[in-house]
Design a binder for these strands. Sequence first.
DNA 1: CGAATTTCTTAAACTAGTTTAAGGGTTGCA
DNA 2: TGCAACCCTTAAACTAGTTTAAGAAATTCG
Lengths: 194, 194
Amino acid sequence: MISKPLIAHFESYLPFEEAEKALIESRVSRRKVRHRELTLTSGEICRYYTFVVSGCFRMYITDAEGKEHNILFAAEGDWISDIDSFHATTPSHSNIQALEVSEIIQIAQEDLYHLYLNILKLDRIFKVITEEKYVELQNRVFQNISSTAQQRYLSFLKQYPNLANRLPNTQIASYLGITPEFLSMIRKEITLGH
Amino acid sequence: MISKPLIAHFESYLPFEEAEKALIESRVSRRKVRHRELTLTSGEICRYYTFVVSGCFRMYITDAEGKEHNILFAAEGDWISDIDSFHATTPSHSNIQALEVSEIIQIAQEDLYHLYLNILKLDRIFKVITEEKYVELQNRVFQNISSTAQQRYLSFLKQYPNLANRLPNTQIASYLGITPEFLSMIRKEITLGH
DNA sequence: CGAATTTCTTAAACTAGTTTAAGGGTTGCA
DNA sequence: TGCAACCCTTAAACTAGTTTAAGAAATTCG
């Protein structure tokens, strides 16, 4: 059962019958990813919905000046895909890269559509998953607009307590939209007790 | 048929049978909203999924210092609700306010759940709607992290060409995360041809 | 293990965006 | 129709965050 972690994830939303689990098992693939390996490159079409079994990924965009900007992180139990590119079958603007040795389960476009047709509750589950991710992003937009870099860093620490220790500061700075130098200052100020 | 604009919206995704339309009609309400009226106040639970028939709304949050920050706008054909508060039945952190005289169609929590149970394709439609809104937000996060205020303003103009003329600059500045004064400077620079 | 690369820190000079304040223009409604 | 509330602009002083540079510490990989 390569899909065991994925099915456990689905069953945290709704129960599944054996036949449904077997259908899912027949339509997914699983593989290991090396540290720094790109699973999606800008310009390429995002062909898979990807579930992270273990490890950690970032989605980032390269701007006009060649600078990279992290949009989100995904660790064990998260999904990471360019939803826009996947559904519209258009070239992606973003890149997805492993930040650790990782393992993923992937569902190709036609397999996901096949599953949607044959297991109707998947529509509901992915509706809920997308709503959850939407709420997260909305909080992020609010933080970006209304907070100083220090407040944003503190709320990053709250939201991803496990990632904070695993990720290099350069990745966190890129997520916060500041320079690593300034993040270094912020961390110093915080430990000095401001 | 008070729900006519809403059903037209749903049918832009999938066709509906008469019985389904009648069920929807029986489960929604429609009303007019005055300019500046709040349809959701921070601290209150978001009880309705709201579809904008005409007019325009903003969702905003008030920060620790009492400043308001616009998270998104919604005009004709858009949905505006605090998804988190609605589903979790918890007090909302945000406010929703009409920026023009408007008209809305609302679906209460129990009615929406009743519709989900009886019209399965609504799961799929709201899955897709949420995915679309997610992609929009993701672009906004990218803009916020990677662009100067001027670039963000230009991309706001592209994304909401019709809203740009309808909204006061104060609202746009709050959406961009800058002061109205600085937006004023940006607009001057742009018309001078930079 | 040791060399190469990546990562973190500090600090000084700089720039994008804020704050405050003041004046003029619009809009809405009694 | 007139006044209050809102909205936009300009400008000067200020502050949060960037840039550049250089050295120290930690990882990675042959």
